[in-house]
Write a protein that binds this DNA or RNA. Structure first.
Lengths: 203, 203
DNA sequence: TTCCCGATTGACTGGTCAGTCAGCCAGGTA
DNA sequence: TACCTGGCTGACTGACCAGTCAATCGGGAA
């Protein structure tokens, strides 16, 4: 039994090893110009082994995305309903920014190849992505019900603006449009929330 | 001479005819799963003729993008420096929304296949795209200098948030995440500006 | 009428990969 | 020792498609 477990563990490790290699190669070359042989090389593994663990190249990206996106959804859902809406939005923005800080390559792949790739994987995962929008819209609606957000802006609309701003910010980091030092990360999440909630105009 | 002109005109028409067909097919199937033969069929033209007018499939998309994006850049630059910054932002948002209202297929292609396609055409056109961000940032900076925008938010950051919000809104229309009736179009541009400038919180 | 030339045609080629598969190897079991 | 099983290997194949090119067409000029 112990031996069987060890065998399984090794197998799990190899699987993970391939998945991690895939993230690196996808981040470097993009999904489309990544050949499966590139992933195998990066993982230090034979071509065929990739297909021992994964049904297809697509499945690898799907798995990478869903793994992390489900954490995002969980984070949004977990924020307590008693917490002030603004703080809940800050938690969402914070999670996304921290995800990028912690593993920029993975987030780059998720954003570039899935979230923003409306004609390929974005379409496949539209329900999951839409789910996030809806949860954010609920937070906004709650804020309106409490009277801390103005109610002349549609919650779905506000949700798209909020998410769009964050995603564009990450894109800015990913493509070096804006500096990405660690203090930038620290301020970023609050700044998005401040921009969306407080507005550009002084009070 | 007149005959020569007519010949040229016909050629221009055929070229346009192919380009227009390309927009329709790209919008319907996405750039990647569009075969050149699909474009030829849609245009009612022989396969080889496409290559008589265009060097490659890529060139068609590049041309479609640059044609419209240069109009956007011109619009941003044209807004008068004396106009209130908020109104200048409204003009930018208005142009983008009107472009979508006027030719949703073209805008879908531009956004989905270029602007959001960071690993393919987005990369190629990054300078043009970045140019738009910078021009928007200048408007924000001008607003800060005039004291009508708060100056504790980096203009480049505000620019990304603003553009990100608009693009996400168009994406919402494109993928039916939010309703797209004509009164939605009318309000949309102002609503984005109101959200970014005024903020979600009541004053 | 003949010539010319650019517009037009579509069959064909070359290159690229994703995914397959026949078999190898190591180490556990009888 | 002989056998077995499942991780592991990598050469190979079939499908796909962008771009080429040799040939045809049509209409104006001489």
């Amino acid at each position: 039994m112990a031996s069987r477990e060890r065998t399984t563990d090794v197998a799990v490790d190899k699987r993970r090893q391939i998945l991690d290699a895939a993230v690196r190669v996808f981040a470097r070359q993009g999904f489309h110009s990544t050949r499966v042989s590139d992933i195998a090389d990066e993982a230090g593994v034979a071509y065929g082994l990739v297909y021992h663990y994964f049904r297809s190249k697509d499945q690898m990206l799907n798995e990478l995305f869903s793994e992390r996106w489900s954490l995002l959804l969980a984070t949004i859902e977990e924020t307590d309903g008693d917490t002030p809406p603004r703080q809940r939005l800050a938690a969402v923005a914070g999670f996304i920014v921290d995800s990028y800080r912690h593993d920029p390559e993975l987030m780059k792949v998720i954003i570039v190849e899935v979230t923003r790739a409306a004609n390929s994987f974005g379409r496949t995962h539209l329900p999951e992505i839409r789910n996030a929008y809806e949860l954010i819209a609920e937070i906004v609606a709650e804020g309106q019900a409490q009277g801390v957000f103005r109610d002349d802006i549609d919650p779905n609309f506000a949700s798209l603006s909020f998410y769009g701003a964050i995603e564009q910010l990450l894109s800015g980091w990913i493509f070096d449009l804006i500096p990405s030092g660690s203090q930038d990360f620290d301020r970023a999440a609050d700044l998005v929330v401040e921009t969306i909630c407080g507005g550009l105009e002084p009070r």
